[in-house]
Write a protein that binds this DNA or RNA. Structure first.
Lengths: 183, 183
DNA sequence: CTCAAAGCTGGCCGATCGGTCAGTAACTGA
DNA sequence: TCAGTTACTGACCGATCGGCCAGCTTTGAG
């Protein structure tokens, strides 16, 4: 049997398995069984296990990059609302990938391809914190920026009570509220 | 050389190494080198690698349990403020342990000793969401509950700009603001 | 002084890991 | 028809993993 889209199947399986058991907790054998091919086939399509991880995170990172570019030209206030909306959408669209990243954060931080993510996230944080520069606004920005992906992380483990639209709206409102200056 | 407090040294080293490289990413050999003893010595003091993980998380889990008991008798409003303060304090005191848990969340969720943590966190979430029961308040509670430990997670990787007191105050204010009903 | 317990070591075990390699079946353009 | 490329397999490799065990010191009570 020869298939045409094995590469995509590998990426799909790897994403689900990495998200469920972590990068280190998932072996090439596990992925091969899930895909229904040999372990060697994985390494025919990808240079290494790490290459699989990098490839499956690539689209999410690319979109984060795009979000960053989109915000660069805006004024402070509209940049903030756009950042909230963009980051919520991005976190919800790439739930599984975020689960993978969160599940292996300490080990991944050292990897060069994620250093860029760190920079982009820091920039987003500055935008969310706004120009005031008080500790509270900076910490609130970190809170939102860490909390939203963490919800995306947890949402597949027992938070099916809300629809995506409800969840999105609620996240944006809660984030906006946390970041709003006290009245 | 015979030492008296090897057990504590093992727990300290393991916590730091697990936090830095993850549970799976740290071998018994790594811990043994860090402590300055043999790998076999680790398994003399603890039944297994997993037992080390369980033991080092035990104090944090016990305190979470205490926080839960303390909140049980309170009314809705004071329970919420006490929950915020208690959870912020707990998250800051056990930063390293939280880093360990976050770093291996997917794998750890299946473990029985962490099922209890899941329950306690859910109860905390209900208290933070309050009696209103709207999606926004529930999601805001999740946001705060996920965001605070995530900051504790990230704080040791480049957020030394604030003192613990500043950080604590800012976290409590940001969390309170995110959870406050719109005025 | 004796001796058992506590604390610890070096060496070893089977299992599993990521990765390599020679070989093969199927498809494809010349 | 046939050479060449693509997609893939099974067997195998060295390294590393968690864990076990026989035996060696050190310590302290009787």
């Amino acid at each position: 049997m020869v298939r045409s889209n094995t590469r995509e199947e590998i990426l799909t399986s790897a994403t689900r398995l990495f998200a469920a058991s972590g990068y280190k907790g998932t072996s090439l054998h596990d992925i091969a069984v899930d895909v229904g091919c040999s372990k060697a086939a994985l390494l025919y399509h990808f240079d290494s296990k790490e290459a699989i991880l990098t490839q499956l995170c690539a689209p999410a990172i690319a979109e984060l990059e795009q979000l960053h570019d989109r915000l660069e030209g805006l004024e402070s206030a509209p940049a903030r609302t756009a950042a909230i909306e963009g980051f919520v959408d991005l976190s919800m669209r790439y739930r599984k990938e975020i689960q993978v990243i969160y599940g292996d954060l300490p080990g991944l931080l050292q990897q060069p391809s994620f250093a860029r993510v760190h920079l982009l996230t820091q920039r987003l944080c500055e935008i969310l914190a706004g120009p005031s520069g008080t500790p509270v606004s900076a910490v609130a920005a970190k809170l939102v920026l860490a909390g939203i992906p963490a919800i995306a992380f947890a949402v597949d483990q027992g938070m099916h009570c809300y629809s995506d639209e409800e969840l999105r709206a609620a996240l944006i409102e809660a984030a906006t509220r946390a970041l709003a200056p006290p009245t």
